[in-house]
Design a binder for these strands. Structure first.
Length: 398
DNA sequence: CATCCACAGGAATGAACGGTTT
DNA sequence: AAACCGTTCATTCCTGTGGATG
């Protein structure tokens, strides 16, 4: 609707000039990745052979969330594909978020689907309905048909509930499943201990190279935010805003994603307050909003009972502050009463134990094992890692 | 030193569901 | 239309665990 001149809507955003720069999905272009130069060149040497159509080294990357692991992996892979193309080698890479595709079948499906082009190959990769081995067979066919080299990035590899896919991928060449195509795996994990529970055979082949990404320090975070500051209009950012946000984020976690979230929220708060500039004080409010948003995202899609369990724990933490956790039976009692209140049948104790374990895996709660006392054997205590107030608020929203 | 209790967690099972294939 | 296939959510049964108690 062009050129209408009423003042009902603001047509010029007073704060943001280019907000996409602050979206999590936004991939910074060349020269916009800050403070990861060493990591990038290390990665590049590891996968370098692919340019000549040889097998790239398999790589495992460790590092906490928001340290630029997937960013660098994607960046290097893209550059590799481009460079290989200049050398006349057809290469591609596939990115799998194992937090979403937790099972072997789903992961293979995503890989096959993302490297496929059914117009060229004539191979169809349906979303579901096929057996795992069928997906593999189609994947190998596609790869042999189309590519000389393929890189497979497995992000959050520790969320995978099986090692099977790693086995298959690492042995694909040897077992003669693929003949014309070389395959490299880049695994990304934020749990250092992940390697310990890996199958021995997989470990030796997958961990040819290992890199650890350290958290960003305050200076790097500031550079990262500076690099994206043209998301805002000129002069809108107070000079102290970014340093404040960087200091806050560095002290707490060194997570670049969270830091950028905070910056974006600060801008949105300025917007809704009608403030002409993004003031330093908005940063603190933004941090709180970032927290609740992150938590809401974390439990999105979880079943009602999974929430009740969490709610039970939140209630316990609120009424008994400064306790180092609550044992399963206590949580279960409260959970049962919440169920009665909600008018739904409660699940078995066994099931609730599993639900608690799932939350522990997502770092929403922390579990600790204890033993002692007469007739107590071993038991587990659960403690909320999030702010109980936030948890209760989000869970009782609707 | 065997017993006991309250809890942990593995294994087997199955129903419901949404999809493909032939 | 019937046969398959994988996933998720849940239950039931069963075997460990470990320190105080008699």
């Amino acid at each position: 609707m062009p050129e209408a001149t009423d003042d009902l809507f603001t047509r010029e955003d007073p704060i943001f000039a280019n907000k996409e720069l602050l979206e999590i999905s936004h991939l910074p272009g060349e020269g916009r990745i800050v403070g990861r130069d060493n990591e990038i060149s290390d990665l590049a040497t590891a996968v370098n052979p692919a340019i000549f159509g040889q097998s790239p080294s398999n790589v495992l990357i460790y590092g906490k969330t928001g340290t630029g692991k997937s960013l660098c992996a994607k960046y290097v892979s893209q550059r590799l594909v481009d460079t290989a193309g200049e050398e006349g080698v057809t290469a591609t890479f596939a990115y799998v978020d194992c937090a979403q595709d937790t099972t072997e079948t789903q992961a293979v499906q995503t890989i096959a689907d993302s490297v496929n082009d059914s117009e060229i190959t004539g191979i169809k990769v349906p979303d579901k309905g096929l057996s795992t081995s069928t997906y593999y067979k189609r994947l190998w066919r596609i790869l042999d048909q189309r590519f000389n080299v393929v890189l497979i990035i497995l992000d959050e590899i520790d969320k995978l509930d099986d090692d099977d896919i790693l086995m298959q991928l690492s042995r694909a060449g040897e077992a003669g499943k693929i003949t014309d195509c070389k395959l490299g795996v880049i695994g990304i994990s934020n749990k250092i201990q992940y390697k310990d529970r890996m199958d021995e055979r997989v470990k030796s082949s997958l961990c040819e190279r290992e890199f650890v990404f350290p958290p960003y320090d305050a200076n790097q975070l500031r550079d990262i935010m500076d690099a994206r500051s043209d998301a805002f209009r000129d002069g809108v950012l107070d000079s102290s805003t970014i340093p404040r946000a960087a200091a806050l984020a560095a002290r707490e976690h060194g997570d670049a994603r969270k830091a950028i979230d905070i910056l974006r929220y600060a801008g949105e708060i300025a917007q809704s307050n009608g403030s002409p500039t993004v003031k330093e004080v908005f940063v603190t409010q933004a941090r709180e909003r970032a927290e609740t948003d992150r938590f809401r995202e974390l439990i999105r899609g979880s079943t009602p009972h999974s929430r009740y369990v969490l709610q039970a724990l939140a209630l316990l933490s609120l009424s008994n502050s400064h306790k180092d956790g609550f044992r399963t039976s206590r949580v279960y009692e409260i959970y049962e009463s919440i169920c009665r209140q909600e008018g739904s049948d409660s699940l078995s104790l066994r099931r609730v134990r599993d639900l608690l374990k799932e939350h522990a895996f997502l770092d929403i709660i922390e579990q600790s094992k204890h033993s002692g006392g007469s007739a107590e054997g071993s038991y587990t205590k659960h403690q909320l890692l999030e702010d109980p107030g936030v948890v209760k608020e989000v869970l009782t929203e609707n």
